[in-house]
Design a protein around this nucleic acid. Sequence first.
DNA 1: TTTTATGTTATACTCACCATATAACAGAAA
DNA 2: TTTCTGTTATATGGTGAGTATAACATAAAA
Lengths: 124, 124
Amino acid sequence: MLIEVDFNSEEALYVQLRNQIILGIATSDIQEGDALPSVRQLADTIGINMHTVNKAYTVLKREGYIQLDRRKGAVIALDLDKLQALEDMENHLRILLAAGSCKGITRDEVHALVDEIYSEYEHL
Amino acid sequence: MLIEVDFNSEEALYVQLRNQIILGIATSDIQEGDALPSVRQLADTIGINMHTVNKAYTVLKREGYIQLDRRKGAVIALDLDKLQALEDMENHLRILLAAGSCKGITRDEVHALVDEIYSEYEHL
DNA sequence: TTTTATGTTATACTCACCATATAACAGAAA
DNA sequence: TTTCTGTTATATGGTGAGTATAACATAAAA
């Protein structure tokens, strides 16, 4: 799996890593049981510090996306706390949709966007 | 319009202000042409520094939600750059939906959430 | 005119977070 | 034993958040 980082982005590096790995899981680019590169290896590949990768992995572990195994490394292991996920999504959507609504984005247009994006996550 | 702030939140105070004002516009709590409190007045009301409110207003101005008038103060004035808004929403949704998809949230459940939230923005 | 309130700008300070650097440890694989 | 792993600790430079104080030009109200 290819992981890239934008050093000019306002977003923290470890957040970019976290997001890209979540995207990789959603698009089935990496799957349950697959191992991610070691913190030192990934850090060396993209040219950043080991601790930055470690922080991304720690966040992903806390959020229930991976488990850290001393033998296998960081392994994709999804913790399906769906209620929590729904609550998180609702909180984020409430702000995001409010901003869109102010800008004239209709409910139907949001539905179309959701369909378009979700179709990227279902081409099994 | 009631504006509250959570000092224990991880989110920056000026971001909380920005979000609440956008929510206020979306729910028609405040409307085009309405004036927001002055930076000093709002800062005094919620017990924070003037510059923090000023930063929120500056962001809202840059994002096209208000215009700052020396006579009327901060006035709601929507700049409908819909293309930019759609692009922003798509970028945010791509991450948000990926996380949800990993957690087992279906496309239909997202649609239901969108409908539920949008209905709060349309009870004119 | 004087007073008051406005947005705006400048500077400086504390605090927290980000990213880095170096180092060390215990456990497991080669 | 050697090597690699995750993990932890400590320190440093940089950046942004929030506050504090101050000053300015403008415009409304007295």
